[in-house]
Computed example of a mutant assay.
Amino acid sequence: MNRTPAVAIALLLLSGVAPGHLAKEAPVAPGERIRVDQWHLRFLKADDANAISQGDGVIVAVLDTGVAPHPDLRGNLLTGTSTIPGAPGNGFLDENSHGTGVAGLIAAHGQSNKIGARGIAPEAKILPIKSSDEANTGKPDDLATGIDYAIAHGADIISISSSGGTSAKLVRALRDALSANIVIVAAAGNRPGDAYVGYPAVEPGVIAVGGIDRAGFHAAVSVSGPEIDVVAPAVDIYSTSFGGKYSKGTGTSSATAIVAGAAALIRSKYPDLPAEEVAHRLTATAIDKGPPGRDDQYGYGVIDLVAALTADVPPLGFESTGVTAPASTEARTGNGRDDGTVRGLVTLGVLLAAGGGYLIWRRHRRAGDPPPRISR
């Protein structure tokens, strides 16, 4: 069963336009302007979070259209692979720009304090895995092969930019990654092409990410549903592009990359924290929006980078008690649908995965129980 691409990412290349992607250019100067235009960094207080953690020592696998080398990613890009049959490679070929944008939102470091794009975790490493072609089309089994590669090559977080069909091989690969203590984040999907949260975001153990706009409210482009865990900025999000250029996108793709970066910050500061506890920190410290408690538009709320790194969060299993348990680990100093075509342009997935304990947490939160209160 083929599905329509998860719509609504408006790809806008700056300082150069990729044929077929846009109707017009935006006269935004590269380099100097891009940091100013990255409003989501200020909204999330990324500078404050980066004073605590920058993602050092964490590998984020980006399964997407490939990640092109970019000055703002220099030194952060590992040699990867291509899982597309008949198109071998090291993951650096990106004819679409989507994967390069995802990587930049996670780990771009810019070219100075004020020049170039910056990611949420600027010292994290990106493992590029090309699992979709230039049209953002890939097959579930190619995605599964990419997940297997990420597991074998030490990924701490898996980023998957797809929403669509599944297969037995893909389900098995996702569950293997969860069992391997890998954090997986996936985009919920974008309206109007998607009416419900797509796969793999609906897979138990995967964090499903929705989007908010510049005002912090539910973004019209974002799919809603009972599987939504957290939300992040998803409108007019600037990042890196192929050819050393920059791009602007709207969709849950961007929000998911941002959440993957947040997970990298947590895993860097708390290197021994299990994946399910990383996910738990993100939801327990999220800023509640909409009706009190978890809801279908915001999940548990908007991610709070600083609180996720500093709050006293009771570990899983303490939700129904008044006990505030000690931190789980010592912080590091310094730093069911049918087979079908997988589409990725809009749903930049950075699958945040967890182990068996998180599967219990996921079922628990679907029952409507709020996360434990935390000390900020």
Rank of each mutant, 00 (worst) to 15 (best):
E25H: 07
E25K: 09
A26I: 08
A26C: 09
V28K: 03
A29V: 09
A29C: 09
G31A: 01
G31H: 08
G31L: 05
E32Y: 01
R33T: 07
R33L: 09
I34K: 01
I34T: 10
I34V: 15
R35M: 14
R35I: 15
V36D: 13
V36T: 12
D37L: 15
Q38Y: 06
Q38D: 12
W39N: 03
H40N: 15
H40M: 14
H40G: 04
H40K: 03
L41Y: 05
L41E: 07
L41I: 06
R42A: 15
R42M: 08
F43W: 01
F43N: 00
F43H: 01
L44W: 06
K45D: 15
D47L: 11
A49K: 02
N50P: 10
I52C: 04
I52E: 09
I52N: 08
I52P: 10
S53I: 12
G55A: 13
D56Q: 15
V58D: 07
V60L: 06
A61W: 05
A61H: 02
L63T: 08
D64L: 10
G66Q: 13
G66E: 09
G66R: 04
V67S: 05
V67T: 01
V67Q: 00
A68Y: 06
A68V: 07
P69T: 05
P69H: 13
P69S: 12
P69Y: 11
P69W: 08
H70D: 04
H70M: 08
P71M: 10
L73Q: 02
L73N: 03
L73V: 07
L73A: 11
R74Q: 15
R74I: 14
G75E: 04
N76I: 06
N76P: 04
L78E: 11
G80K: 06
G80S: 12
T83P: 10
T83R: 12
T83F: 10
I84W: 03
I84Q: 11
G86C: 02
G86A: 00
G86R: 08
P88C: 14
P88A: 08
G89W: 09
G91K: 04
G91H: 12
G91C: 09
F92S: 13
D94N: 00
E95Q: 07
N96M: 06
N96L: 09
G99P: 02
T100A: 12
V102W: 00
V102Q: 01
V102G: 03
A103G: 01
A103T: 01
A103Y: 04
G104Q: 02
G104C: 10
L105S: 10
I106M: 00
I106Q: 00
I106L: 00
I106H: 01
A108C: 03
H109E: 11
G110A: 14
Q111K: 01
S112R: 00
S112V: 00
K114Y: 14
A117F: 08
A117S: 10
G119W: 05
G119Q: 11
I120M: 11
I120L: 04
A121W: 05
A121G: 12
E123H: 14
A124G: 11
K125Q: 15
K125F: 14
K125W: 15
L127K: 13
P128D: 06
P128Y: 03
I129P: 01
K130E: 02
A135T: 08
N136A: 12
N136F: 13
G138N: 05
G138L: 00
K139C: 03
K139D: 11
P140L: 09
P140Y: 04
P140S: 14
